[in-house]
Design a protein around this nucleic acid. Structure first.
Lengths: 231, 231
DNA sequence: ATCGATGCTTGATTATTATCAATTTCAGAT
DNA sequence: ATCTGAAATTGATAATAATCAAGCATCGAT
């Protein structure tokens, strides 16, 4: 891979602290590929041969069982996915497909494991990243088990508004996939948007305006131990 | 703590590979406490001062939001809990209470973090443990999002039967808490047991007999990427 | 500009799950 | 052995969510 692409990867917390020689060695086996939209990158149950880094575009992580499918997460630049499978040398638990045209760096898992053993700073960063991933999924589970779908949507909108720093914004994802991520059907998401209107939400296509942030927060009851992704 | 208690901890994969001197140092700040049943050990949002190791008894990890409560996991000997919070120096996401009389070792998080930096084998073991925890929660999320409560119960019973190696067994947990863990109410769990009878499940109090393992499996459609906790 | 495919919305219906209320069962304390 | 309180069960009802069936909107390709 080129040096400029290497810089993008190097900027990630996961790779920022490791030794220069080690990073270069890791990049030697790495290659970058361009993918069109809606391309399957990996399929659950396959061996985790590569750690993936999304450099541009967006990737959906999803799972299937018994002809049902659910969206687990969306990965946006610049971040990695399936580190846990990669480091444990175990099969992927989730599938991944591009949502848009995307540039992905593929780092051989073997190299990641070798470097983990060789570079203490890298090992520390990996543990931090794994701990963070773990906590994110735990928060997600709490969201699913403790809230109704309407409450999940309300809190999702508050989170979006907060991370964008504005009371109005465009949804970054199709409503269909948002529904799946929130654990509901597209039909119910549509009705849920309607049901949030009296709580201060206006929907015009994919543009959302939170007309009454306090009112919405009163209904949603956001909680840092579920909704704060930074801790 | 005493040497015999130290041995129990040392037997855990997390502590098995680290250097002897380092392990002894880690145990120096560790103390063991006995707790009666139904005692709150930690509360979510508190600082994670200690890594906990369940030596005997059983501990329930649970969470609350808006007057609702859900059981997230049961920790049985010998294993640790809340490693992620401990290593990241972040507040607990879950509360913990003893289910029975329990013996718990408390290892200061500071010492864990210091040893993580000092002992490569320990760092590796921590990363492996975190990766494993992450994958367990992901499987749990897939269970919740892709299956109905009846299907979750059916698969739970198959997992229990498999880990015990017998078609009949006693439930290790109160039905009330099992219901909460599976994301349903006690009333519905009761009805779900009844509904599984035609699929080959017999319930006598807390004793379960799977009278038709193939039939139950046909209904439950177990999948290693959800139900196999060993990978 | 038109077509076709897909996503989105709406209404009607069904399925699933929770809540409320009333017993019954069970285990621990006296 | 009896009492007591919590857990478990059962039935009735309500809330929540999924499914089925149209119809409308949007967008890219021709």
């Amino acid at each position: 891979m080129s040096d400029s692409q290497g810089e993008e990867v190097r900027g990630l917390a996961l790779f920022a602290t490791m030794g220069d020689v080690n990073f270069k060695a890791l990049m030697r086996g790495t290659y970058v590929q361009n993918f069109p939209p809606r391309i399957d990158l990996i399929h659950e149950n396959e061996p985790a041969d590569f750690l993936h880094v999304v450099l541009s575009g967006a990737v959906d992580l999803f799972s299937q069982w018994n002809r049902r499918e659910t969206s687990m997460a969306t990965v946006r630049p610049v971040s990695t996915f399936i580190l846990a499978a990669s480091i444990s040398d175990l099969p992927y638990l989730m599938s991944a497909r591009t949502l848009e045209k995307s540039r992905i760096a593929l780092i051989p898992s073997q190299d990641v494991r070798r470097m983990f053993a060789a570079d203490t700073a890298f090992a520390t960063a990996i543990a931090a990243e794994l701990a963070n991933s773990y906590r994110t999924v735990v928060k997600n589970t709490k969201d699913l088990k403790l809230r109704t779908s309407l409450e999940r949507l309300a809190n999702y909108l508050l989170r979006q508004s907060r991370t964008r720093g504005a009371p109005d914004f465009d949804l970054t994802t199709e409503k269909k996939r948002l529904a799946s991520f929130l654990g509901m059907t597209p039909e119910n998401l549509s009705r849920a948007f309607r049901a949030l209107e009296p709580h201060g939400v206006k929907v015009e296509g994919s543009h959302i305006t939170i007309t009454d942030p306090q009112g919405l927060a009163r209904y949603a009851k956001p909680n840092p131990l579920i909704d704060d992704y930074s801790t």
